[in-house]
Amino acid sequence: MERDDIVEYSLHAHHSDEDGKKIRKKIWIVTAILSIITIIEVGVGIALPKAEVSTGLWTAIKYGYILLTLVKAGYIVMVFMHLGDEVRTLRRMILWPYAIFILYLIFICLTEASSVHNYWSSFH
């Protein structure tokens, strides 16, 4: 039996040749951004290894790496995985619960790690 009440969302995803050109241009721009960020990370890693920099500078480099990683992750999720083009409800339903879970996990594990570290150190 033919159903006329089932919405086939996949058919809405088609686009024209002109739109395709714009989308491809965006893809190549994002490719360039991801490559440049990776080159920066590797360059800093080779030029300023942890063993040769001061503790303060290393902390800055470390958070810099994490920031650049999050920027890369953002481009991959929003552009390559098309989450930026999805409806706002879907975007939020995917990102928010994940962010809340992981931020909580990071917070609780690192707090616990620091506490365990101090406790074990007290035996020496």
Binding site: I102, L105, C109, V116, W120
Partner: peptide
């Protein structure tokens, strides 16, 4: 994967040795 990498961080910071 988030859990595994967080566990890596825990192991790194928890054990002084």
């Amino acid at each position: 994967f988030g859990g595994l990498l967080t566990a890596l961080g825990f192991a790194k910071f928890a054990n002084p040795e």
